[in-house]
Design a protein around this nucleic acid. Structure first.
Lengths: 323, 323
DNA sequence: GTGAAAGCGCTAACAG
DNA sequence: CTGTTAGCGCTTTCAC
């Protein structure tokens, strides 16, 4: 009897014991499919991210996992490879399981995707980015602002001839926004980026080396290099140290993400923390709260959480004073 | 009419058109829960791994994802944090969705877990490791053999005073087996490991630095350091280069995994490829083939695939001849 | 407190 | 080719 297994409703101790015993000896595992169909409730949460090969997303997943620990909810992950059509398809498939909520990376989606999110009738949290209009709830950082903050810090330290390196990914909107923010912040002070370079594929660390070398050959006067992620930044750092360049005196460096890796580099790379696991945890929390609400309750204003990334100066961005 | 949407059975073009039109205008998304309950078939594959914060597992997932691309099957990931009880619980929850198959890391499971796997009546592939008895199919490498191979290579290059560093994780059976294999391979030639050290938590790169330093303070005569993963190996390498140590002349180094990162280090660390995405792809393939079989067909002998990791000598293991 | 019965939204099998 | 119908294994509700 199902009342026992879900220990719900009025059941006498004797009956419970008897049923539990039978269940164990039979090796009974309840069928959630039938259960969910009958109860019109599914304890699954769709999580849609662009990639797994960038440590950023696994870290977000870890935050989500932790928040769902000891709750009935369970994340189900879909990967889009930064492709809008794939995002659409993955979302469609996930929605056909009628999940309790959706956590999806980014604010840029195809019309069809937005329509599905809007009509699904379940809580939707768009994560990582807050520069744009969410369908429902939102948790992230402003990448544009992150770029501007970095621009300000760079200028404040007295660097003026700035180069940028990043991934060649028109669909990585967050990287694009950071670049735009940087440009904006520099332009405001009358400074233009002097060189830029984009890569695709390969080992990020190795690419960082190569790109740094070729950029400095083209533009030897640069005094600051901003990398769109810490991995290529680390590559650049290792290359420059090999070359005996004075860092941060002659050239300053900064990356983005605050990956744990940086702690072990010969010199600590300046970076900004993207608040990855916090974002995951907060998004999960929103779904949790929303799905605890009674079916017909007014969910109120959807949550819009903007976290503020902090600059970590490390040892590659302080030209003026050390420390 | 469901025949149209699954484009199955005999339907005239006119009817199909009519139904498709209606579906689109209504924004209809089929309910897989009802569908799966009725058809007794679920296109989900449970994938159970210990962790997401070690790039190894996301890479296996990528292999699985790719193999399932353009098939009806979809992986659902569960994370155990290397805890047997959690593995048991995650598996139980996944089985209650009646997946088409299970891909699970490792061969060591609690009795309850093994029982569930055995009784589930679906294909089970145990991955990553082949030193042990699988419940059903198996794809991986022999970590014990990997350890022995590394021992042989180290001795062949003339190193004799060997130190080992790894994670303090009694439940990481694969790391343990590599260590055992190494010890075994050395002992056979009358060599004992002279120092060993285990860490837990923190940035692997930084830990590699610290452990290397403290080990060499304790045992300055060591001429080879074997690291249980590439990340701490990279940390050790960076530390030793800082110290001006002659590598691989004075001290040789090797890690394990073949992570892409290594390409960008100042000197290429010797390592062994754990065949991560191949393992994922092969495991997915096995599930795919098995679930294409008719319900009552004899599946035959379960697949047992042992991949052979290759040593990559890099630039830190050739004492005798370079290249 | 307990048993019985009516669906949940599909699929599969069958009758037209 | 097309319409109809009986379940799939649960949850929920309603009698007892």
């Amino acid at each position: 009897m199902s009342r026992v297994l879900r220990n719900r409703g009025d059941v006498s101790a004797t009956t419970r014991e008897r049923v539990l015993q039978a269940a164990k000896t039979l090796g009974y595992v309840p069928n959630q499919i039938a259960g969910s169909l009958a109860s019109q409730r599914v304890n699954l949460v769709a999580v849609i991210i662009p990639s797994l090969s960038n440590m950023v997303f696994p870290e977000v997943l870890t935050g989500i996992n932790q928040a769902f620990e000891d709750t009935p909810l369970q994340p189900v992950v879909g990967v889009t490879d930064y492709m809008p059509e794939k995002e659409e398809q993955v979302l469609y498939e996930m929605l056909s399981w009628r999940p309790s909520g959706v956590i999806i990376a980014g604010l840029e989606h195809s019309d069809a995707t937005r329509a599905m999110l809007q009509n699904a009738g379940i809580p939707v949290v768009e994560i990582m980015d807050t520069d744009g209009n969410p369908v429902d709830a939102m948790v992230g950082i402003s990448h544009r602002r992150a770029g501007r903050m970095m621009a300000a810090a760079i200028l404040k330290e007295g660097y003026t001839r700035i180069g940028f390196m990043g991934t060649k990914m028109p669909l990585d909107h967050r990287a694009r926004k950071r670049f735009e923010g940087l440009t904006e912040g520099l332009t405001k002070e009358g400074i233009e980026i002097e060189a830029r370079d984009f890569y695709s594929g390969g080992s990020a660390l190795a690419k960082g080396r190569e790109m740094t070398q070729s950029m400095l050959e083209r533009a030897p006067d640069l005094d600051f290099l901003y990398y769109s992620n810490d991995m290529i930044g680390a590559g650049g750092l290792l290359y420059l140290l090999d070359q005996g360049v004075d860092i941060p005196g002659q050239i300053g460096l900064a990356g983005f993400n605050g990956v744990e890796l940086l702690q072990g580099l010969p010199r600590k790379l300046a970076t900004m923390d993207a608040c990855r696991s916090e974002i995951g945890a907060a998004a999960a929390q929103i779904i949790l709260e929303r799905s605890a609400l009674p079916e017909d309750a007014d969910p109120g204003e959807p949550a819009r959480i903007t976290l503020t990334p902090k600059i970590s100066y490390g040892e590659t961005l302080r030209r003026n004073q050390r420390g």
